[in-house]
Amino acid sequence: MADLSFYISPLSEEIRDQGRAQGRAQGRAQGRAQGRAEARAENILLVLGARGIGVTDRIREQVIACTDSERSRRWLVRAVTATTAEEIFGTEERPGR
């Protein structure tokens, strides 16, 4: 029979605890990043709606699906002064590309 004492030793418990702590920390960081992305998307759509700028379903989906924080920040800044959705999203960021 194999010696399984390592798996119940204090050292193995410490290693498992460290792995759990790392996993929780990574999960929290991912959750915060996702929360910020969702908040940016909501803010972009809120600003556009308040300014009366029409948003197609495709653009709405694009904004919500965006995971690039720099891109979504640019969109938010542009949303404050733009008069059309095209000014915000431009040709390089047109839905479907």
Rank of each mutant, 00 (worst) to 15 (best):
F89I: 06
G27Y: 00
L46C: 15
P10S: 13
S12G: 09
A82P: 10
R74M: 12
R20V: 14
F89R: 03
A2C: 13
G23P: 09
A21T: 13
V77P: 09
I8P: 04
E13T: 13
R36C: 08
T56D: 08
F89E: 09
I8W: 14
V63H: 06
D68E: 10
D3Y: 02
R20I: 14
R36Q: 08
G52R: 02
T56P: 07
A65T: 00
A85M: 11
R28T: 02
R73F: 05
A2T: 14
L46S: 15
I15V: 15
T67Y: 08
T56W: 02
E38F: 07
P10C: 01
G19L: 10
R32W: 09
L46A: 13
R32D: 05
G52C: 03
G49T: 02
A29V: 02
D3R: 06
D17R: 14
R36W: 04
E70C: 07
R73A: 14
E92I: 09
V77Q: 04
R97M: 09
E92K: 13
L76V: 01
E61V: 05
D17L: 08
R74P: 10
T84G: 08
R51Y: 01
S72K: 00
E86I: 11
R16E: 15
V80I: 14
Q30F: 08
R16W: 10
C66G: 03
Q26G: 11
A25N: 06
E93K: 12
L4D: 06
E13Y: 15
G96N: 11
G19C: 07
R51D: 01
G27A: 01
A82M: 07
A37F: 05
E42G: 10
E86R: 13
I44E: 05
G90H: 10
I88Q: 00
R97I: 12
I59E: 05
L11W: 13
R71W: 12
T67H: 10
I15Q: 11
R28Y: 13
V55N: 01
T56R: 10
L11K: 15
A29S: 05
G27H: 05
V47N: 00
F6Q: 04
V80L: 14
L46E: 11
M1V: 14
S5I: 03
V55M: 02
D17V: 05
I64G: 06
A2S: 14
G35Y: 00
Q18C: 11
Y7A: 11
G52W: 03
Q62R: 08
R36K: 07
S12E: 14
R58W: 09
Q22W: 04
Y7I: 02
I15Y: 10
E92F: 03
G90Y: 09
R28I: 12
A41V: 08
E70P: 12
R20E: 13
L4S: 08
R28C: 07
T67A: 08
E86Q: 14
E70H: 13
R36H: 00
A33H: 01
A82K: 08
L76M: 06
N43C: 00
S12V: 09
A82H: 04
I88K: 06
G52N: 03
G54N: 11
V77G: 07
T81G: 13
A50F: 07
S5Q: 12
D57S: 02
R60D: 07
A41N: 02
V80F: 03
Q30Y: 10
R51F: 03
Q30V: 06
A41W: 02
